[in-house]
Design a protein around this nucleic acid. Sequence first.
RNA 1: GGUGGGGUUCCCGAGUGGCCAAAGGGAUCAGACUGUAAAUCUGACGCGCGAGCUUCGGUGGUUCGAAUCCACCCCCCACCA
Length: 426
Amino acid sequence: MTDNTLLNDLQGRGLIAQHSGDIDTLAEHLQPPRTLYCGFDPTADSLHIGHLVPLLMLKRFQLAGHRPVALIGGATGMIGDPSFKATERSLNTAETVDRWIQSISHQLSHFINTDKTNNAALIANNGDWMAGMDIMSFLRDIGKHFSVNAMINKESVRQRIERPDQGISFTEFSYSLLQSYDFTELNRRYDCTLQIGGNDQWGNITAGIDLTRRLNQQSVFGITLPLITKADGTKFGKTESGAIWLDPHKTSPYGFYQFWLNTADADVYRFLRYYTFLSLKEIQQIEQDDQQRAQKPEAQRILAEQMTRLVHGDCALEQAQRISSALFSGQVEDLNQAEFQQLEQDGLPCCEVSLPMTLTDLLVSSDLASSRRQAREFIAAGAVQLNGVTATDADQAITQAVALHQRFVLLRRGKKQFTLACLNQS
RNA sequence: GGUGGGGUUCCCGAGUGGCCAAAGGGAUCAGACUGUAAAUCUGACGCGCGAGCUUCGGUGGUUCGAAUCCACCCCCCACCA
C-alpha cells in the first residue's frame, strides 16, 4: 500500500482501473498541488451519467488539494474518438459542436470549483490550440512521433481494423494524435502532469504520456477509471428512454432520482463507492445494516438522495421525493389542487388534453401507449390505473367527473410509468 | 476510377416471385411472483375495433401477383489503382 491518502481511498473505491508506472512513483508524485486533467468531448448538448465518474474524480482530486482542468474537446469533438467504437461516426457541424461546447462547459463548472482559490479548477478547450495548428506542423512536429505500426495494434481500434465489414477513416484514426497533443499542451501551459479518463481511454492516455516525454521532456502520468458495469450485463446509464442526462430539462430530477432508486442490489454498494462522497466506512456500515435487516435495502434510497442532491441540489431532491411518494403510495385522491400543480412543476410528465375523449385516446395522447391497439392491450392486461384505480373499460369516457378537482387525471401504466393529464377547461 | 460484397420492421439477422406484416435472436413493454429489486414463467411487440391498410435504400418497370425479377439512381464496406 502507498502512503497517499487520496490514492488509498480511490483504490478502496475501486476507482482505479489502470495507472501508468508503478503505484509508489505515482503516490510520490501526487503530493498536492498537482495539476490534472480529463477531457470531455462535446457529443451532445449535455453530459450524462457516464461522464459523472471522471468528473467526480476531478472533484475528488480537487478536494485533496490538486488543481483540476476540465478540457472540453472543441477540436477532438469535431473528429470523433474511434476507441472501442464499432462503427465510424458521422461528423457534426461546427455550429452544432459550438452550441454543445457552451452548454457542457456550463455544466462542468457546477462540479468543480472554479472560484479563485489557490487550486481553482480550469475549464479549457482544445480548440484553442488545435484550431490554429497548420497541417505541416501537425504532420512534422506531432505525427512524426507516432508509429502507425503501433497505432494499428491498439486494442481500441482492433475491431475496426480486423472486422471485414468495418473500416476506419484517417480522420478518426488521427484522433489519438490530437488527444496526445492535448496532454503535451496542457503540460506546457499549466504544468499538468496527470490525465485521467475512462478505461477505454488508456491507449490515448499512454500515447499522450509518450508524446509529452518526447516534446517536453517531462514525465507525466495517467490513471484510468473502471468501466461502469451492471451485474446483469446490460449497459449502465441507459434506460428504455435513452441516456440519463445531467441537464434537468433532458432528464428531470424526478427521473434522475428514480434511476438511482432502481439500482439493482448487486450493484448498489459498488455504485455508492463510485459515485458518492460518502466515506468507505459509511458505505460499509450501510451494507452491514441492510444485511442485518434482511429486508428491502436502504442503499438505493441513500444513493438516489446523494446523487440527486449532488447533481440537482436540495430543492430538486425534495421535489423528486415528493413526487415519488405521492405516486407510489397510491394515495392520489388525497392530493389537493395545489399539490397536483406542484407535481406538474416538479417534473412529473404531463399532458394537456381536450375532452371529449376515451381512455384509449387518453393513453395515446399522453404517450403512455404508442398506438390505440397497444393502449387496448395494456388495459386488457390490467396495466392501466386511473387515479389509483385499475381501469378495465377501454372505451370509458374521460370526463370532469372522473378527474380529481375536475381537472387532473393521474395515469399509470405498469408499475413505474406515470403521466398527469390535465383536462383543458375549454 | 476499377473489382467484389452489401442496404429487410428498434438492433442483429433469415427470407431470392404467391404459403410474408415478413423466421430466429436481442432489446423493449405488460402480466404473475416481489421490494418501484434479481431470477423465473406467460403474453405483446407496423397501423386499424374490423374488413383491411402501409412497410423490406430511392424511383420507375415486368407480372394476375415483387422484400424477392429488370433498369437507373443514392448510400455503406472491403480490396485494387
